[in-house]
Design a protein around this nucleic acid. Structure first.
Lengths: 387, 387
DNA sequence: AGGTTTTGTTCGCACCTAGAACATAATCCA
DNA sequence: TGGATTATGTTCTAGGTGCGAACAAAACCT
């Protein structure tokens, strides 16, 4: 739970509204009102009042539950057709996607366009975002953008594959939350994937680079400057190979798409060819090598951080599918002896390629599903409604 | 803040009592009632009721504040002479110490005894703990024990230097909270040291081994099996040197007391000689070497985790004092380029050798300064008092 | 069709905190 | 030295909240 706690009887109501709305969202708009009432420890009467207030304010709407059980039928609180939506944007090296998420997490792709990576693409993106925002008005409550590179202080972005350096994204897209793609994939996994319900988990996102995040109780550990998750930049494999990041010997370089392309003698920055390599039996050795290194790195992180579970997204599941054995050997070898009898499992993401968008939507809703966010919504529509 | 939030108007009172008591403790029993009232956002009337209730239940007592300001004088809520205490035990390889901490953190050493490390020492310790607990009854509310080795699931302890393997400490000392010494030193630093007030910090504790913890908002990130903090067991320095932990190439082996002893040709497990080496100019090279490795390791952790600040305790401050330059060179070299312009500072602990005890006391009080802990205290004394 | 079960609805009650009005005790200043 | 000022403690009322009991409703079971 991320609620900070009420102090006055007035805040109590607000906090319980947030708790209820959050529970609806977290459970994918699947839970019945009676389940929510029980799980949140509310009296039935209180729950009725809270649900009513959310419905009155167009935050949720209650639909009949499918029957089959005894007793008076209950309802399923779900997204209101005029209710809040989060805008989620996934900006990849070759393509951007805009989607809208409603309460519960259901995603609708609104727009998708390939691009060449020249800077003016940001203008196109800004225009498209503004267009969708006004088209959906007043429903959008927050917008979040995923970017494939380190982000400092929520502003400055480097995207190595496009040659972008220190782009001030906050100036280009004011009011938009930004996050690293790997961190957001991790967030998605924490909320709606294999990490859900676990206390401490480690998620790795393999693309051109290797990124990831440590997840604690459903939230990624945020770096001081917003640049955590650069988990690939540790010298875990000996060697002094210089890394584009400026350090040397970074293990992440030997795992991602570029490593596969390099090992098989192709040009860099070609994601589709990397996928082919992963799919083709001819390149088993290159994939095995990446899996080797991945195992070494994960073992080191597990030793240091002791997660319950490790999940992989991006190219990770492909590597796992092709070279599980190679990975497992180096993984176990690198573990401290006492961890070997029951090591944290390494599992593929449960979410597929939309993980990053899902994570961005969660990030956006996180700012809304708070006492402040809810207050804004309620006061904004106070003038109109009064029933 | 670690309060989870009230749900009912009844819980509200309890949560506000906890918030107030926690604030008293966190601020070292230095804050005045009017400061606490403001900082917690309470009405003066409410604060009066809460303070009164805490006083009535012998949790705090209010003393006159030193004057000098205008207006009606306020009081300083501090520990009650019959109020709760936490028992903190530091078990080192050669010595154990028992101390009592009162609200606000003031520590009194109750007992201290050198030992040889044979297993019956646990019986002596148990006896001493029981004796002090009954002598102070009914004040002790929790006991926490710091141990110099990894702890699994809060039960099984390995202490390499003593040859202890898989000792079931929960069976030997039922009802006692146990924690790794490095993790508890980190906790102390987070609550009452240099990490206080920072969001994300990294603390390293250098003794025979190298341990530490990542601190988020005042709390160490807890490992899934209680065995996080084994941060020294990553292969960051090349080489295949086997480590007693079962893995190979662990950087922590080249930093601690054993590394210094090895480099200068002495027998292992001699802490006082390690301190001499640190103090003697004749062994500058050995200390420089340890500092080198420490810099490498810290840079890798900073790249991956992005802390605001790195703190060192145990032998760390000594290494820093002697070889700050050597450390700084490898530290900067290992950082990603964009982190170099403003890298997180590396500072010595502000707490000295008592850090581990302080951390144990904080751990114990953490279980008391909760709605549950407070309820237990209040109901326990309900039969007697009623004023 | 009547009994059973589960849930929604209504309402009185106990509890909490805010805030206003007043009391108190220190400093400041003439 | 004594009144003005200021900040804080104390007291009390009002508004708001959730709980829980009693009742109503709507499904399933036999």
């Amino acid at each position: 739970m991320r609620t900070t706690g009420a102090r006055t009887s007035g805040e109590l109501r607000l906090h319980n509204l947030v708790r209820l709305l959050r529970a609806v969202h977290e459970r994918g708009a699947q839970a019945t009102r009676s389940e929510l009432t029980r799980d949140l420890g509310l009296a039935r009467g209180t729950a009725a009042v809270l649900v009513g207030e959310l419905i009155n304010n167009e935050l949720i709407r209650e639909e009949a539950a499918h029957q089959g059980t005894r007793g008076r039928p209950t309802g399923i609180p779900g997204p209101h057709p005029a209710g809040p939506v989060a805008l989620a944007v996934d900006f990849r090296e070759d393509l951007w996607t805009i989607a809208a998420a409603e309460l519960g997490g259901a995603l609708t792709v609104l727009d998708e366009r390939p691009h060449r990576g020249s800077l003016p693409v940001l203008d196109d993106l800004t225009e498209a975002m503004a267009r969708h925002r006004t088209a959906l008005a007043p429903r959008p409550v927050a917008t979040a953008l995923a970017l494939p590179g380190p982000i400092r202080d929520g502003r400055l972005v480097d995207i190595p594959a496009l040659g972008w350096r220190e782009i001030d994204i906050a100036a280009a897209l004011p009011g938009v939350l930004v996050g690293n793609d790997a961190t957001l994939a991790a967030l998605a996994e924490a909320r709606r994937g294999a990490l859900r319900g676990h206390g401490l988990g480690l998620h790795l996102h393999v693309e051109f680079d290797l990124g990831g995040a440590l997840i604690l109780n459903g939230d990624p550990i945020p770096g001081a400057r917003g640049a955590a998750g650069e988990i690939g930049h540790m010298p875990l494999i000996g060697g002094d190979e210089p890394c584009p990041c400026g350090a040397a010997g970074c293990w992440g370089n030997e795992v991602g798409a570029n490593a596969l392309l390099r090992a098989t003698g192709g040009p860099p920055h070609d994601r589709s060819r990397a996928l082919e390599i992963l799919a083709s039996p001819a390149h088993q050795a290159a994939v095995d090598k990446a899996a080797d290194i991945l195992g070494i790195g994960i073992s080191a992180l597990v030793n240091a951080l002791d997660p319950e579970l490790v999940t992989l997204s991006g190219l990770g599941p492909g590597i796992l599918a092709r070279s599980a054995n190679a990975l497992d050997v180096t993984y176990r070898q690198g573990l401290m002896a006492f961890r070997r009898e029951n090591p944290p499992p390494i599992t593929p993401s449960a979410l597929g390629p939309e993980a990053t968008l899902i994570g961005a939507a969660e990030l956006a809703f996180d700012t809304f599903l708070t006492p402040q966010g809810l207050t804004d919504w309620l006061t904004r529509r106070a003038p109109r409604e009064r029933s």
